[in-house]
């Protein structure tokens, strides 16, 4: 039986605006099982990224419950939230967010340094992750020497190197051309299938949507539809 990775019940997120509040997420209920390749889609301002940030423990809910790997995000202290991100969650961002002064190898190695893995372990895992994304030859390059597609593949390797249970990808293809987008998506799909890692996207890119096995459509902070597409690239 698949493990529940994410369980969201009656989640509300509000931001103060002037004297009032703007409700970004309104009574969200959601369950994501391990191994899913799901995506939050919807127009800008629909709450996709806000939900993703809360699930990534970068933000906290105003009310309701968001359980990630059985940990209630709203109740986590700063250290516990950091530990959750460090150990179990990988992030992929639209703007890659690679550390600029580190090489490709060092960027991928970084999460393992935080986990205090030995040098030997780190070396093995980094080489493996670079192999997954096909960037062994770029291990000594700096981020400013990489193309957009290569940078995003480094970000994928960095997110995957610690074998997280959950990868949160926020608009991962928004800065990529079609060719690189498909390359990156193929890589993520392959890792999802090979390693069983759960992927949750926030996107409005049709190229990503083609790959999703589950689509959660958000509109004005509410789930408008939650469905499995009849036809996608994976089927």
């Amino acid at each position: 039986m698949p493990e529940t990775i994410i369980q969201v019940d009656n989640l509300i997120k509000q931001f103060p605006v002037g004297k009032g509040f703007f409700t970004a997420l309104d009574n969200i209920c959601l369950r994501i099982e391990s191994g899913e390749f799901a995506g939050l889609i919807g127009p800008s301002g629909s709450g996709k990224t806000t939900l993703l940030n809360i699930l990534g423990s970068l933000d906290s809910p105003s009310s309701g419950e968001a359980l990630v790997l059985n940990k209630s995000i709203g109740k986590l202290g700063a250290k516990e939230a950091a530990d959750l991100r460090k150990e179990a969650i990988g992030f992929i961002f639209q703007t890659y967010n690679l550390l600029p002064v580190h090489t490709v190898y060092e960027n991928v190695e970084f999460p393992l340094l935080l986990l205090k893995r030995t040098k030997k372990e780190r070396n093995l895992q980094v080489e493996e992750a670079l192999e997954w994304v096909g960037l062994q030859s770029k291990r000594n390059s700096r981020p400013n020497e990489l193309s957009g597609g290569e940078s995003q593949r480094v970000a994928i390797a960095r997110a995957m190197v610690k074998r997280p249970k959950l990868v949160l990808a926020d608009e991962p293809t928004a800065n990529l051309d079609a060719k690189n987008s498909f390359h990156v998506l193929d890589t993520m799909k392959e890792l999802n299938e090979r390693l069983g890692v759960t992927f949750l996207f926030a996107t409005h890119d049709d190229k990503v949507i083609q790959y999703l096995r589950r689509i959660i459509e958000l509109n004005d902070g509410q789930i408008a539809r939650d469905y499995t597409p009849e036809k996608n690239i994976q089927s």
């Binding site: 990534g56 970068l58 700063a78 250290k79 150990e87 690679l98 986990l115 960095r158």
Partner: peptide, 16 residues
């Protein structure tokens, strides 16, 4: 600031 956000996303606390 983006780098700072990345550190936090990768598992750093604010105090770290």
């Amino acid at each position: 600031r983006r780098e700072i956000g990345t550190y936090i996303a990768l598992g750093y606390t604010r105090s770290e």
